[in-house]
Simulated scan of single mutants.
Amino acid sequence: MEIWLERIGRWLLAGLFVAGSVQKVADPDAAQALLAMRGWPVWLIWPALALNALGAVFLVFRLFLGPTALALAAYCAVTSLFHWIPDDPWQMSIFVKNWAIAGGLLVLAARGAERR
């Protein structure tokens, strides 16, 4: 049962990163606007897209699980900064969700390291 719970958890997390990849392909302007708003180079959308897509594949197939989960946790932590808008409750909920996802990925990294 535990194996299936982990597998479903990995697939659900991967779905989030697949959606992020699709969103960046379908409407790169939205993500680039967030980058520009914070003074970051807009070309960062392309490595972010690659990280989202590759991270999703690696989560689904349990490849390099520890390093993948750590990289995606760091990505969630960094991207949470784009949602730090204290006057906007919606953006703050996204900020908190990013940290919750990062936490889940850290647990997955720890579990992935112990299961080989």
Rank of each mutant, 00 (worst) to 15 (best):
L49D: 07
T68Q: 07
V78P: 11
A113G: 11
E114K: 15
G55S: 08
V22G: 02
G20R: 01
V60H: 00
G104W: 03
A31S: 14
P89S: 00
G104N: 07
A73C: 09
F82R: 04
M1F: 02
P67D: 07
L81R: 13
V60Y: 00
I3C: 08
A113D: 12
G66N: 13
R7Y: 07
W40H: 13
F64Y: 14
G20Q: 07
R115A: 10
L13H: 03
L49G: 06
G9Q: 06
G9K: 02
R62K: 10
D27R: 09
V107C: 12
R7N: 08
W43C: 00
L59D: 02
L105D: 01
P86E: 01
S80W: 03
R116G: 09
L51Q: 08
L72G: 06
A50Y: 03
W4T: 13
C76I: 10
A48S: 13
W99H: 14
V25A: 06
A48N: 12
I8R: 04
K97D: 06
G15F: 01
A69T: 01
E114F: 14
L106F: 05
D87H: 04
M92P: 00
F82H: 09
D27I: 07
F58T: 08
A33T: 08
M1C: 11
A110C: 12
Q23P: 08
V78L: 15
W4N: 14
H83P: 00
W43L: 04
G9L: 05
I85R: 14
I8H: 01
A109F: 06
P41C: 05
R38L: 13
W40N: 13
L35Y: 04
P67L: 09
V96W: 11
A102F: 02
R111T: 12
V57Q: 02
V57N: 05
P41L: 05
I101Q: 01
L65F: 06
W43D: 00
V25D: 00
D88G: 04
W46Y: 13
H83Q: 01
L105H: 00
L63M: 12
G104K: 07
L108N: 01
A110I: 14
L12S: 04
Q91T: 06
V107P: 04
P28W: 10
L54M: 12
M37T: 10
A33S: 06
A110M: 09
A48Y: 07
S80P: 10
F58P: 01
G39M: 03
L49V: 05
G39H: 03
P67Y: 01
A71T: 14
G39P: 03
Y75D: 14
A113Q: 12
W99Q: 15
A73S: 10
A26E: 05
F82Q: 12
I101D: 00
S80F: 06
R62A: 12
P67E: 09
P47A: 00
A56L: 07
M92I: 00
V96D: 02
L106T: 01
L49W: 08
Q32C: 03
F82Y: 10
V57W: 08
F17W: 10
R116A: 12
W11D: 02
A74V: 15
Q23M: 15
W46E: 07
Q91C: 01
L34R: 13
L12Q: 06
